[in-house]
Design a binder for these strands. Structure first.
Ligand SMILES: [Zn+2]
Ligand SMILES: [Zn+2]
Ligand SMILES: [Zn+2]
Ligand SMILES: [Zn+2]
Lengths: 141, 141
DNA sequence: ACGTTTTTTGCAACTAAGTTGCAATATAAA
DNA sequence: TTTATATTGCAACTTAGTTGCAAAAAACGT
């Protein structure tokens, strides 16, 4: 059994061809991927609905997480395999969107700052997206 | 000239019937509104495209700002009329999404926390959405 | 290895959000 | 009031995502 297949098993996801491929695409990606990104990389060998359903399964089983950018497009990235599993999702971190290349990166080293909310509001979770220039685009300008 | 019309003028937006109505809907709203919310309140007297275009104009002229929730739906709320205008948009603040009623609220009293990014990243802006329970929904549970 | 149960996949059809081009209309300025 | 410019309605289109159902593929018990 390959490493990818082990990862799927650990998250209680049955191993199939698309799932192996999509997971390998994620593990190679340096930034969060949209459905369209994955469809492009898969090369139209699989139905778009299958890709949507695979993403939902990966999400539900704690293998990936979702970031929605200001344009409303969902992007997905691998979770920290140690932190997240079927039961709990504990991989909260800041995301960075480059205004030049449009890519969204996970910033695992940035701490989530504490926010004190006004009276009456109950805190559940904080989502932070920072806009700016990524390393690569900063060089190239 | 009414107060609403003055506000439109101050943001260099020509006064028309829809624009007066949509601005008045915004000024009465206690939370951020989606295109669908506005269409519902207008009562189908105006074309959906006109509403989209009005929202874009208001946005470009610094009268409203946009928040995209995790479902990818755009919502809009009035900017602080003192802070934002045609030239500059200086109304950065935290938003709160209630997981129960689904409404998004502007939290003008919460300070944007400083984040220090990893080497190489250039900061432009920070977007924060807090999920939780709003005042009203907390009471009702 | 074999048949059975359960999941997964492909296909087609559908919804919801948002955009574009163009002609008709309304606003603002001279 | 005339003219120039901006706005609106309509129709058509795009893109993202969902649903139902039958066929195919895994997993399971013997
Ligand atoms: Zn970049
Ligand atoms: Zn991430
Ligand atoms: Zn609420
Ligand atoms: Zn706001």
């Amino acid at each position: 059994m390959t490493l990818l297949e082990q990862t799927l098993h650990q998250h209680q996801i049955r191993v199939t061809a698309v799932r192996r491929l999509i997971l390998s695409i994620f593990s190679r990606a340096g930034f969060a991927l949209s459905h369209a990104d994955i469809e492009r990389q898969l090369g139209h060998d699989y139905d778009r609905v299958t890709i949507y359903r695979t993403l939902r399964t990966f999400l539900e089983k704690g293998l990936i997480h979702k970031v929605t950018d200001d344009a409303g497009v969902a992007r997905y990235a691998l979770c920290d395999l140690q932190k997240c599993n079927v039961e709990s999702h504990a991989d909260e971190h800041v995301h960075f969107k480059c205004v030049h290349c449009g890519h969204i990166f996970c910033l695992n080293s940035v701490d989530l700052p504490p926010l004190h909310l006004p009276e009456g509001y109950v805190w559940y979770a904080t989502t932070i997206i920072v806009d700016g220039l990524c390393k690569t685009c900063k060089e190239g300008l």
